[in-house]
Design a protein around this nucleic acid. Structure first.
Lengths: 178, 178
DNA sequence: GTCTATACCCGGATAGAC
DNA sequence: GTCTATCCGGGTATAGAC
């Protein structure tokens, strides 16, 4: 039952992050919760960035699972996306507000997270990316408390879903160059 | 020609922010560029947040002007939005990634920035907000270097504009409860 | 309105003993 | 694999002299 020290450190880092935000995640604080001193952490992990990479991987994996378990419709995916992000604000921000360390991440994590949305757009990467950005924008502005106090966020999400829902008459037209 | 010290401090803070990012904006650094010491700044400004409020107000005002000077079509507004944000990445982030200090901002700044987009949607706040979020999402993911290296961002922007362009057959239907 | 000196925090990371 | 001691850096802000 002896838990691996790295796993333990990642778990503690996550607790600190989710509870009190990024500034609460220091090597000293992590170590303290493990009952050791900060320098000892460096026997298990090369640097702080390595711990953050673990957190980012966990975030992408869990968000991907949340989407995978949601219904196939855009409305379902949007609801799942919003729900996971709002439920894990600091983890979500960590995973989206900075370049991801692709070399320190397990292979496929990024694609696996993106798959459900890509499928909903039948492989159209451009539309899927625009929809992802829209969902991300809605979430991040909500998390940053940047909407006016009286804004109806549910209605904004509905407008987003409506905008990206299929348009029969347009899709019937062959795209030039396609 | 004696420039007001506050104005000067704001200008210097902006230079530091735009050149080297948020971590480069310290009271010490601002003062140094003004040829004084950090403590002297506090004779002119109550605290650092006051300087940041000035920067946020400037960002919103300029972004609003960029949108106002663009064409009325969503495609024009989107291009202007993206262009201004990419041209002032740190300023843009400062103004969007945190709650805005509304009490320290001149009245109307926020509304004035939002007006062009709201007009493009003929006053439909929900759709305007969703479109704003989409543009913000595209910009912030681009600034954070969060798209895959091979992503076609121009195409993603085009997909966003297409999604939010008017749909005659839907708009002809009366909305229930409207 | 500027200065020096300082108080009070915080952080990541390393050296070397055990 | 843990420790203590320490190095390096940073920051906002105040007190009190001039």
């Amino acid at each position: 039952m002896a838990e691996d020290r790295v796993t333990q450190a990642v778990g503690v880092a996550r607790e600190l992050l989710e509870a009190d935000g990024p500034d609460a995640v220091s090597m000293r604080a992590i170590a303290a919760r493990m009952g050791i001193r900060a320098p000892s952490l460096y026997k298990h992990v090369p640097d702080k960035a390595a711990l953050e990479a673990h957190l980012i991987a966990a975030a992408l994996t869990e968000l991907g699972h949340a989407l995978r378990d949601a219904g196939p419709e855009l409305a379902d995916l949007a609801a799942a996306y919003r729900s996971w992000a709002i439920g894990h604000p600091h983890l979500y921000t960590l995973a989206t507000a900075q370049p991801i360390p692709r070399d320190r991440l397990p292979a496929g994590v990024e694609d696996q997270a993106a798959a459900p949305l890509l499928a909903a757009f039948e492989g159209d990467e451009d539309r899927a990316r625009a929809a992802w950005a829209a969902a991300h924008g809605l979430v991040s502005l909500e998390l940053a408390d940047r909407f006016p106090p009286d804004a109806d966020l549910d209605a904004a999400w509905a407008a987003f879903v409506a905008a990206f829902s299929p348009r029969p008459e347009r899709r019937a037209q062959p795209r030039p160059g396609a």
